[in-house]
């Protein structure tokens, strides 16, 4: 989806302002926003790609004016409402009108650290040989899907070189839209910065991880 989350190369946002001795959280609600989002992410009701898709499809102005934890909360609310886990009224009042729905996985306290240490690896067994090898010249597709994708606009229809092959990974374009994992080979493609930006850049190169369906041979 071509929305404002896809920020690479956009101008006029002003300088980066690092905060000296930045605290891990700026308010207590941020602690809870992180924890609630991560714990509900383990509920089995959606996957990480669906969560990203929900965040990036928030109303653009809301996305831009929110802090990142607010973006997470907005998307969390939306995903829970869409799946019937809570209602809008319940969220407003903070009071359950109906009991929770069945089948929501609840991570117990003692299972939290093991679950975090395990993570959710996205690599899957290969079902077919890789189409590209390190050193191959490739070109990204010209594409503008209306749904979730992880190919940023600034690297579409651009020439690059494959520099790493990472194995076969869950494909966000399908996994984020309820069409299943459909794993594909994943590569790092290195783009010469001048091929992306012409002379108006101080980068030498930009490396982007690209699934095989994003690429064609050049």
């Amino acid at each position: 989806m071509n929305s404002l989350h896809d920020m690479g190369g956009t101008m006029n946002f002003g300088p980066v302002r690092p905060e000296v001795d930045e605290p891990i959280f700026h308010a207590d609600w941020e602690r809870k926003a992180l924890a609630l989002t991560v714990l509900m992410g383990a509920s089995g009701q959606w996957n990480i790609d669906q969560a990203r898709a929900a965040r990036e499809s928030l109303p653009p102005l809301r996305y831009l004016s929110n802090s990142y934890y607010q973006i997470w909360l907005d998307a969390l609310d939306r995903m829970m409402i869409e799946r019937g886990l809570v209602t809008e009224d319940e969220l407003k009042t903070g009071t359950a009108v109906r009991p929770g729905v069945d089948g929501v996985r609840r991570l117990q306290a003692e299972a939290v650290v093991p679950a975090l240490m395990r993570g959710s690896p996205s690599e899957r067994p290969a079902q077919a040989p890789a189409r590209f090898a390190v050193g191959d010249a490739v070109r990204t597709l010209q594409m503008h899907p209306a749904t979730h994708t992880r190919l940023p606009r600034y690297v579409r229809d651009k020439p690059g070189i494959v520099t790493h092959c990472h194995g076969v990974h869950v494909f966000p374009d399908t996994n984020g839209t309820g069409r299943g994992e459909q794993p594909h080979w994943l590569y790092t493609v290195q783009f010469e910065a001048r091929d992306l930006w012409g002379p108006d850049t101080t980068a030498s190169s930009v490396c982007v991880d690209c699934w095989e369906p994003y690429l064609k041979a050049a």
Binding site: K32, A33, L36, M40, D77, V86, L91, K92
Partner: peptide, 24 residues
């Protein structure tokens, strides 16, 4: 907002309140 959310998710049985503390 977050206090209401936490209360609701605990009431619904989706969240173990002790798990929040461990994660944080």
């Amino acid at each position: 907002r977050v206090r209401a959310l936490e209360t609701l998710l605990v009431q619904k049985g989706y969240i173990d309140p002790a798990a929040l503390d461990v994660l944080i």
